[in-house]
Design a protein around this nucleic acid. Structure first.
Length: 336
DNA sequence: AATCCGGCCAACCGCTGTAGT
DNA sequence: TACTACAGCGGTTGGCCGGAT
């Protein structure tokens, strides 16, 4: 056991003693300045190795063990949007590391999709030309990638901030407690618009489901503490918080659609928009139980047809800017 | 029992981006 | 502006382990 590089630094698997040294050093001094850390901690490792060991293994908030079905789906869906941006994907699964997600993707999910006849890189069925699907995804990915990188950094900083301010000495802290203690803006925001799709129900989501979800989110965001700096919220949340209509009563399709269109009108200036039927069709492939009951989006068209009077040019405008948030479950669910 | 093989995953490597000087 | 140090990211490697032969 124990390879060494030319500078005499140890490589290879970490021993429990090394782990303990690293843990107790970070316990006392916090992490950061990785280059200087090994010498101070009495470790014959390079700083990079220490950092990796901490981030991928020793960090107290890491969830280990089997990936849940929900997590699997989230990874697949986000991968469809973002490609191999593992750190960005990991930002939406806060208790999983990018390395773990990458390994899981490469060793299992990729193969499973291939077996199902889906190209794991393009996320389209093999042999079927679906250029619109791919084009739309890549378009969305462009929009998302820049923002996600910034957001991933924010998440990391939030974690560091949290650790530093909750004396990072307690490694037995309950992850659920972490989630509950985090200020709202440090939690990953979550709209529920697609949450219903991800449930085991085989029922096709209706316009009412969607408007309900958006309005519920609207209601939730209105409870934001006014002290929260707006810059820490993503743009969609700001719009909801500042401009959304006050009514949150749900139950009447036309009333909700009217409010939804009002909400969406707030997006028009600086947000990418598209038509709902297209949006739902593009993603139907990512929701097996949904696809099962729909036939090439025909049902969606019917839904839209029945409600089209509430929309200019028969279009419901959707904000893409927060799409990955649509796709993942609540922060607490992610951590538990 | 021995060997082979493939899956899994921790760790490494090399590159890029960023902050500081 | 150029340079340096460092952190972070994604791709790859290598060792361990369990199942098959």
């Amino acid at each position: 056991m124990g390879r060494f590089d030319k500078e005499g630094l140890k490589k290879g698997p970490w021993t429990p003693e090394e782990d303990q040294k690293l843990l107790s050093f970070i316990d006392k001094h916090g992490c950061g300045s990785w280059r200087a850390l090994p010498a101070k901690a009495g470790l014959q490792r390079c700083g990079k190795s220490c950092r990796l060991r901490w981030i991928n293994y020793l960090r107290p908030d890491i969830k280990r063990g089997k990936f849940s079905l929900q997590e699997e789906r989230t990874i697949i869906q986000l991968h469809a949007l973002l490609g191999n941006r593992w750190s960005a994907i990991a930002a939406y699964l806060p208790s999983r590391t990018d390395n773990e997600i990458k390994n899981y993707w490469n060793s299992r999910l990729k193969k499973r999709l291939t077996k199902m006849g889906i190209d794991p890189m393009t996320h389209k069925p093999n042999g079927e030309g679906s250029s619109k699907y791919v084009a739309n995804l890549s378009h969305m990915a462009e929009w998302e990638s820049a923002r996600l990188e910034a957001e991933a950094r924010l998440v990391r900083k939030s974690k560091i901030f949290f650790n530093n301010n909750n004396n990072n000495h307690n490694y037995n802290i309950n992850p659920t407690t972490i989630s509950q203690q985090l200020p709202y803006y440090q939690q990953l925001p979550c709209l529920d618009i697609l949450k219903a799709w991800q449930m085991t129900s085989t029922k096709l989501p209706t316009i009412n489901d969607i408007s309900h979800a958006i309005l519920r989110n609207n209601s939730k965001n209105k409870k934001l503490d006014s002290s929260i700096p707006s810059s820490t919220l993503n743009s969609s949340e700001n719009i909801f918080a500042n401009n959304a209509p006050t009514t949150t009563k749900v139950g009447d399709d036309h009333q909700n659609l009217h409010e939804l269109s009002t909400i969406n009108s707030c997006f028009e200036d600086d947000h990418l928009q598209t038509e709902l039927p297209s949006f739902m069709q593009e993603f139907s492939g990512l929701f097996p139980e949904y696809t099962q009951n729909s036939t090439n989006g025909l049902q969606l068209d019917n839904i839209m047809g029945s409600c089209s009077g509430d929309f200019e040019d028969n279009k419901l405008l959707i904000n893409w800017n927060n799409l990955p948030n649509y796709l993942v479950n609540s922060p607490i669910d992610c951590i538990n």
